[in-house]
């Protein structure tokens, strides 16, 4: 009996394929793509200021609101933060990735790999929280500044406009540090994977042909690590664009995209504006992803 059922399906591979594909495809088309479509739809509605209700009529005025100077500032501020975080992550991640890929093996490599992946997979909120302990007014940084008698410098830094705040734990600098800390593993792993693929023989060939180590690094290793850097930057960039937890906890009164979206949909119930706002990072990320795909960054994931 089972044999006959098995044969029935064996002789109909297209049917089996359909049975396998339909559940995940349906789920993603309905739940995910469907949701994205309702978001798109919502962004063309608007909130009636008097009744506080969403009016389901096609309009572009919600999008026009995005062009308000305050909202443009939010986009600019968030994108700038994402760019800075991405570059900082590349700078910090590259030496570690390079070291892991080229100079470690066996158990030590596994150990380092675990040391990087565990923060990646675990306790996002807790990791965000942990910096409160460090950056707080009474926390480690202040303690250390007092210890080396640099508290004057710290205070002076906090008074700087644009980066400072009441304490490091409520300042753009705080947001920046926490973002870099949180997303760093997302940069290390792809770069390491890409570097891992650089065959040793290629490096040897380069030095054999007379290249100095620095030349080999610049002409052979960097170009080959590039897809990894792109793949990593997709994560750091995208995650920074969409995060509201960190600005909420470490931010001053200035808004970031995520925080704005959260506020619009939550306290004011303005889902259309929240949806329109979200189209910003989507457009940025889709363009980014398409470029990355062209550059072959997905092979390094």
């Amino acid at each position: 009996m089972l044999n006959r059922i098995s044969t029935f399906f064996y002789l109909r591979p297209r049917l089996v394929l359909a049975l396998m594909l339909i559940p995940p495809l349906l789920w993603f088309l309905v739940v995910y793509i469907g949701s994205l479509m309702t978001m798109l739809l919502n962004s063309f509605f608007y909130l009636d200021g008097f009744t506080g209700k969403v009016v389901r009529e096609f309009t572009l005025k919600t999008y026009l609101k995005l062009l308000d100077p305050t909202n443009l500032q939010i986009f600019g501020r968030t994108t700038l933060m994402a760019v800075l975080v991405t570059f900082a992550c590349i700078l910090i991640a590259f030496p570690l990735s390079y070291y892991m890929a080229r100079f470690t093996s066996g158990r030590f490599k596994t150990f380092l790999y675990l040391a990087v992946t565990i923060p990646l997979w675990s306790s996002y909120v807790v990791r965000v929280y942990s910096w409160k302990l460090i950056l707080a007014k009474e926390g480690i940084i202040t303690w250390f500044a007092n210890l080396v008698h640099l508290n004057g410098l710290l205070d002076a830094y906090l008074k700087l406009p644009g980066v400072g705040g009441t304490s490091l734990s409520i300042s753009p600098t705080g947001i920046f540090i926490v973002f870099v800390y949180i997303w760093l593993p997302y940069m290390i792993i792809p770069i390491q994977t890409a570097l891992e693929r650089v065959p040793k023989s290629l490096i040897e060939a380069s030095s054999d042909l007379g290249a100095r180590p620095s030349e080999t690094f610049r002409t052979v290793i960097l170009p080959l690590a590039f897809p990894g850097v792109i793949a990593g930057s997709i994560f750091t960039f995208s995650l920074t664009l969409g995060d509201f937890i960190v600005p909420q906890l470490y931010g001053t009164s200035s808004y970031y995209i995520g925080k704005a979206v959260l506020t619009y949909q939550g306290t004011s119930g303005n889902i259309p504006l929240a949806a329109a706002f979200t189209m910003g990072p989507i457009v940025i990320m889709i363009v980014y992803l398409l470029i990355a795909k062209k550059l072959g960054a997905f092979d390094a994931l």
């Binding site: 995910y32 978001m39 995650l239 969409g242 979206v261 889902i271 949806a275 990072p281």
Partner: peptide
């Protein structure tokens, strides 16, 4: 994509 996209999409 940023988590907020999935979030606000589902919220929509």
């Amino acid at each position: 994509l940023p988590g907020i996209v999935t979030g606000i999409a589902m919220r929509s």
